[in-house]
Design a protein around this nucleic acid. Structure first.
Length: 415
RNA sequence: GGCGGGAUGGCAGAGCGGUCAAUUGCACCAGGCUGUAAACUUGGCGCCCUUUGGGCUACGCAGGUUCGAAUCCUGCUCCCGCCA
């Protein structure tokens, strides 16, 4: 496999766009110019299987470097997953079983290879080396660090001074991750800015082991769709496997000040254009919505394709701007006669709260009741007033802005 | 090992014998306004029902005191801190 040396513009793109920090910067530039195939390490915890476009920031960088002939080494953190990465966590995570880890890892890799080129990637499991580790090795590894060093980590220090628990096993996390670098002989390790400490530990252990210390490459963290840190638990993320229309819609819901940032980090939109968008948003010289629509198209195109992006946009305009029904209205077939008998319907039809809950459009009948009272439920375009409504084959129920359903009679006709 | 503090709805955090399905903030949902932005504003936010009402289940777990307990007592479980 031949390595191509980036020209000046490419070098600039590689080392500046969507980059937080490269330590040491000079080494990295030198390494890219050396013509040597680099081993680009990235680890992941198979604890949270959904990849988000936040992860895509780093993965895109890996992909770009693959195009120049470098090799990605992805580490499946099957041991560290059992600890749970303490980075940015306010509390310790529950440990996972071996089966869960395996399953999660598969899911993760499937998504990972949507961005990263599988042919120029090496998949390594931590158990390859940690499986053979004995207590003496663990002690030897731990002996290389002091408690004070570990407490340099911002999140450990914060938790410690806030009198929140810090598990002893958590101190092991950075060491294990660092040792991975020794095991796979990595040249560069990638991670979010919150990973900096862990990545630096790798450098330390590599020089101890007589290897050239890896270059640390951090990418910025993408904030969530609500403007705060993107995380699974907040539900404010956009998954890479999301459907085109979901993805498009979620992008449209991000706050304006984040548009330029998203563009810079997860798209290839030219720097000048990103700067222009930033200016438009700040100075309010145009409608930021247009910039956001472009961003949404770019993102959908990247994770699906251009056709899907156009379609998602049409769908979006139709449903939300024009308030019409979406084209790909979900359809639910139910037997009207069963519904009628189960609900002891009378001449006025079935009880709506019960029906909505039965159709899983609302979590409970109480919730449905509230929504009806708040005039948030429509049937065939009419706001629902009463508690009962007649069934009609093909009726369209809408709850709030986002929930739609076309109900079709499974009995095949009026009952 | 000793001493002390605590466990309340998604989170934070009030309540300390009845008026508590439980103050408040955040998060969330819905209506209005809009660009599914922000800001603002209104309502809501345990479950079920024939819904200006009724019923059921809930304040770590198990018992007890009482006409009545999230609130008092006993035991258990778990968490946190300090000292050793």
């Amino acid at each position: 496999m031949t390595v191509r040396i980036p020209n000046e513009a490419e070098m600039d793109w590689l080392t500046r766009r969507a980059v937080a920090e490269i330590i040491p910067y000079g080494e990295f530039v030198k390494a890219l110019k050396s013509g040597k195939a680099l081993r680009l390490k990235m680890g992941f915890d198979p604890s949270a299987p959904d990849l988000t476009i936040g992860h895509a920031v780093g993965l895109r960088k890996l992909r770009q470097l693959q195009e120049f002939g470098h090799t990605v080494v992805i580490i499946v953190g099957d041991w560290t997953a059992q600890i749970g990465d303490p980075s940015g966590q306010s509390k310790t995570r529950p440990m996972l079983t071996a089966e869960q880890v395996k399953e999660n890892a598969e899911t993760y890799l499937r998504q990972f290879f949507k961005i990263v080129d599988r042919d120029r990637c090496e998949v390594r499991w931590q158990s390859e080396w940690f499986g053979k580790f004995g207590l003496s090795e663990v002690v030897r590894l731990a002996a290389k660090f002091t408690v004070a060093q570990m407490l340099e980590r911002a999140d450990f220090a914060e938790r410690f001074s806030a009198q929140k628990p810090v598990g002893v096993h958590e101190l092991l996390y950075p060491m294990l991750q660092g040792y991975d670098s020794v095991a796979v002989q990595s040249d560069v390790e990638f991670g979010g800015t919150d990973q900096k400490f862990n990545l630096m530990v790798g450098r330390e252990l590599q020089s101890e082991a007589g290897q050239a210390p890896q270059i640390v490459f951090t990418v910025p963290l993408l904030v969530g769709t609500d403007g705060v840190k993107m995380s699974k638990s907040m539900g404010n993320y956009i998954a890479v496997e999301e459907s085109p229309s979901e993805m498009y819609g979620k992008v449209m819901s991000i706050p304006d000040p984040m548009i330029a940032e998203y563009m810079e980090y997860v798209t290839d939109v030219a720097d000048q254009d990103v700067a222009e968008v930033r200016r438009v948003v700040e100075e309010r010289t145009g409608n930021p919505r247009d910039a956001k629509m472009r961003l949404a198209r770019e993102i959908v195109t990247q994770f699906h394709d251009a056709g899907a992006a156009v379609e998602a946009e049409e769908q979006f305009v139709r449903t939300f701007s024009k308030r019409e029904l979406p084209e790909d209205l979900p359809i639910r077939e139910v037997s009207f006669s069963t519904l009628t008998s189960e609900d002891s319907a009378n001449g006025d039809g079935v009880r709506l709260p019960w029906l909505l809950t039965h159709l899983e459009m609302t979590a409970s009948a109480s919730e449905a009741n509230r929504l009806i009272k708040q005039r948030a439920v429509e049937i065939d375009g009419e706001v629902v007033e009463g508690a009962r409504a007649p069934l009609r084959d093909g009726m369209v129920i809408r709850v709030g802005k986002h929930r739609f359903l076309r109900v079709v009679d499974a009995d095949g006709g009026p009952c």
